[in-house]
Amino acid sequence: MRPALFAIATGLLGAAVLHLIIILALPAFTGLDAYTRLSSYENEDQFLIFSDKRDEMGFSNGDPYLRTAACLISVEQQPVHLLAEGNVPFWSFSVYDSSSNEVFSMNDRSATGGELDAIIASPAQLAAIRKSNPDVISQSVLIEMPRPEGYVVLRTLAPSQSYDKAAQDFLADASCESFEQE
């Protein structure tokens, strides 16, 4: 009986110490998520292109063969329209909510014509788009955003230095703007 009580008391004390450590360490991790760091740039509705070297917020390409850009989005007022085209060997994009949960991802292999054309909207906005403009379904990928704020990460491949200019141009010409409904 005594060893069982000792084991229970040790377990409870260990759990209390662990919870205390987590609670005290939490402020050190707050603000380190991608959404919070991106929001410090105040670059809503345009892509921020990352360089090969880490910037002051810790963003960089991270992979020598990928070029990366990110755009902070908000569908609170109106949907967001993503557009990008160019002669690159591969591209992909991912949509994340403000908690950095992936909402959607896609690459050029599943895009019509190999071009990025996507509309990100709230459920009510998507219903209005489908009702007012049914042709948009055949042109654009429609993405439902569960929360009003989030961000998009756009990546393109530059497998050799000769592709670097095309990759940089692809990201520079990509747009992340409000969608004007007809």
Rank of each mutant, 00 (worst) to 15 (best):
residue 1 M to F: 10
residue 1 M to L: 09
residue 1 M to K: 08
residue 3 P to M: 04
residue 4 A to K: 01
residue 6 F to I: 09
residue 9 A to D: 06
residue 12 L to K: 09
residue 18 L to G: 02
residue 23 I to T: 15
residue 27 P to I: 13
residue 28 A to C: 09
residue 28 A to S: 15
residue 29 F to W: 05
residue 32 L to Q: 13
residue 35 Y to D: 05
residue 38 L to F: 08
residue 38 L to R: 08
residue 39 S to T: 15
residue 39 S to R: 14
residue 43 N to I: 06
residue 43 N to M: 11
residue 43 N to H: 12
residue 44 E to F: 05
residue 45 D to A: 13
residue 45 D to P: 01
residue 45 D to L: 10
residue 46 Q to N: 15
residue 47 F to R: 05
residue 49 I to L: 08
residue 49 I to M: 06
residue 51 S to G: 15
residue 54 R to W: 02
residue 54 R to V: 09
residue 54 R to A: 11
residue 57 M to A: 13
residue 58 G to W: 08
residue 62 G to H: 13
residue 67 R to Q: 06
residue 74 S to P: 07
residue 74 S to M: 07
residue 78 Q to F: 05
residue 82 L to P: 01
residue 82 L to I: 05
residue 83 L to M: 06
residue 86 G to D: 01
residue 89 P to M: 03
residue 90 F to P: 01
residue 94 S to P: 00
residue 96 Y to Q: 01
residue 98 S to A: 03
residue 99 S to P: 00
residue 102 E to C: 00
residue 109 R to K: 12
residue 110 S to Y: 13
residue 111 A to L: 03
residue 112 T to A: 09
residue 116 L to W: 05
residue 120 I to W: 06
residue 122 S to L: 06
residue 123 P to R: 10
residue 124 A to E: 14
residue 129 I to V: 10
residue 129 I to K: 07
residue 130 R to M: 09
residue 134 P to K: 02
residue 137 I to Y: 01
residue 140 S to G: 02
residue 142 L to S: 04
residue 142 L to W: 06
residue 144 E to S: 15
residue 149 E to A: 08
residue 150 G to I: 11
residue 158 A to W: 09
residue 161 Q to D: 12
residue 164 D to W: 11
residue 166 A to R: 05
residue 170 F to N: 00
residue 174 A to Y: 02
residue 175 S to G: 11
residue 178 S to K: 15
